[in-house]
Design a protein around this nucleic acid. Structure first.
Lengths: 143, 143
DNA sequence: TGCGGTTGTAACAGGTTCTGTTACGATCAA
DNA sequence: TTGATCGTAACAGAACCTGTTACAACCGCA
């Protein structure tokens, strides 16, 4: 399975904004966040754009512009972030339709779909257990 | 997340072999399996090769060659298959190391790793619940 | 002993996704 | 008006999966 780091970057960015705001700043720029994440600012803006669509962040343009959270870190779970970045399913069915004349080819799709749905549900339940507040607490504890 | 269909194809192949053997045949060829899966026989051989390494299948060469299961469908869980195909982690950390001078950049990796490990564990628990016998039962029920 | 069917594996092309980068218009406080 | 920043398009490169061709290795059987 090809693992991407979108959830990691998104969680990192939101946590960074949260901590920055907690220290008295109003907005965080994509450039600042990109420095912490060690990537390009456009990558951050693209990702935060998706998080904004999901209602987790908002942005200001113009001078003194930047990014803010729409709610406290304690009110954002990793599941919220996961759903915001619209990650595709963990497992996919066949790329090409299997032989419908074959019993197995005909029935395997629905059979596996049921299992995959349960797996996704378990994954979501697990992600929902952790808030960004929890993440930040771990981060500060490690420092 | 980019979803691949390796688990689907592997489960399909093993289930097909299992049913074929249950119907009295000794070995199944990659060509037959590929027809049911609707793909190229080499794709099947490659995947079954990994399953053989994991001890789930074995093959014969020469004339009258083909593939067999090493144990009953009821003794193979989807977790066994998942581990056999050596799927990478569902979530990855940063591609480039985040800024170690930043509190968040420094501590976010370990914090998220702990969560990701729990997620993987939940995924494995879920996959372990289903055997290929269960899958075959569903398949035959749908027919 | 030779034939024919099958596996084992390398090699390559094409598709998809993610990531990084550059570029530039849009926006807005000062 | 200026300057900082967002918003977004466009493109290149990496990584992975899939499909395909090609061919050597293997071995039961005539």
């Amino acid at each position: 399975m090809s693992a991407n780091s979108r959830l990691t970057i998104a969680a990192h960015a939101l946590t960074w904004i949260g901590l920055y705001q907690r220290r008295g700043h109003e907005v965080a720029t994509s450039e600042q966040i990109a420095t912490s994440v060690n990537t390009n600012a456009v990558v951050i803006r693209r990702l935060l754009g998706e998080l904004r669509k999901a209602g987790l962040a908002e942005s200001r343009r113009g001078a003194g512009a930047g990014w803010m959270l729409t709610r406290d870190l304690a009110a954002i779970t990793l599941l919220d972030v996961y759903q915001a970045i619209e990650a595709g399913p963990v497992f996919a069915l066949h790329r090409a339709t299997p032989d419908p004349e074959c019993v197995v080819g005909h029935g395997i799709g629905p059979a596996l779909t049921a299992v995959y749905d349960d797996v996704e549900a378990a994954l979501r339940r697990e992600l929902a257990k952790t808030t960004l507040e929890d993440v930040l607490r771990d981060v500060l504890k490690a420092a």
